[in-house]
Amino acid sequence: MNPAIVTTLPPKTRHKFFSPARVSAIACNTLLELVRLKVFYFLLLFALLIIGCSGFTSIFDFQFQEQFQILKDVSLGSMSIFTLMLSILATAMMLPKDIEDRTLYTILAKPVPRFEYIMGKLLGVFSLLLISTLVMSAMFVIALYAKQQIVINNTLHQGAGIPPDQVKAMIEGVKSQTFTVSLIPCLITIYLKSVLFAALTMLISTFATSSIFTIFIAFTVYFIGSIEGLAREYWYSTPNGSETAKILMGLVALFFPDLQLFNLVDDIVAGNTIAMGLFVKTAGLGVVYTFVYSFVSYVVFAFKEL
């Protein structure tokens, strides 16, 4: 053996069953891919929408409570729609795109287990949703603060001649209508709902034949999930109902998530407060749903012939 051609081999390392580094590499790449798709342009639309809404409410002769109500409803409603659309659209095209680009084969040819691939992809989408929710929340807070300042200035202007303690009370009244602690659970539930939907869309996309099919089914599930509560009520509280209807309702309640439970925003903005225990239970349910859908996605993907 010629010692000149002997090369030093790298020390033999044992392949780890689970590697957070591999998962985070996939997640970072997924996030980067999504950012390159210029998905953040929708934020511009969101900004225009809340600025427009803020100005629009001033045109009418609305009281400041009505103005804040409309601004909050439109902003949080738009956040719900945008995060939902983003989660469904971004997740639905991930697997088909990776298959089309052959990236999936390159990744899976390396010692990357399939569950790490699914986990990485989902974490990438979750990060995108987190960034989007945070940016939209920041825009919402800025718009609300600007509106509050306008209303306070108007109050000071109209309150000329009124005793200072009364003006102070009026300003306190305006401030109490603007920012409330309960807005935080609103933002968290919006994020959780979008994360749940990303996991669900991933599950659909593991057996779907095209992105369009995945998107269509995901939106259908959204609408069914929104009335799933009614189906469950029927199952539990109608003992004498028709058997066929009962079985159908039972199946709906069994396989679809009850999205009504995550629609807390409307009532919270209206002035309802949510107890911490109740919020934790609701958020916990969202996390469990996300985990179960992610797990089933893995089960289907693990045995998928590629």
Partner: peptide, 26 residues
């Protein structure tokens, strides 16, 4: 798996919905 999860979550969801209603939601 989905059916098992569905069966176990149905009762919890029903209870949670009742708690929500008691707290004036929905």
């Amino acid at each position: 798996i989905l059916a098992l999860f569905g069966a176990s979550k149905m009762h919890f969801e029903q209870q949670l919905a009742e708690e929500h209603r008691a707290a004036f939601f929905h």
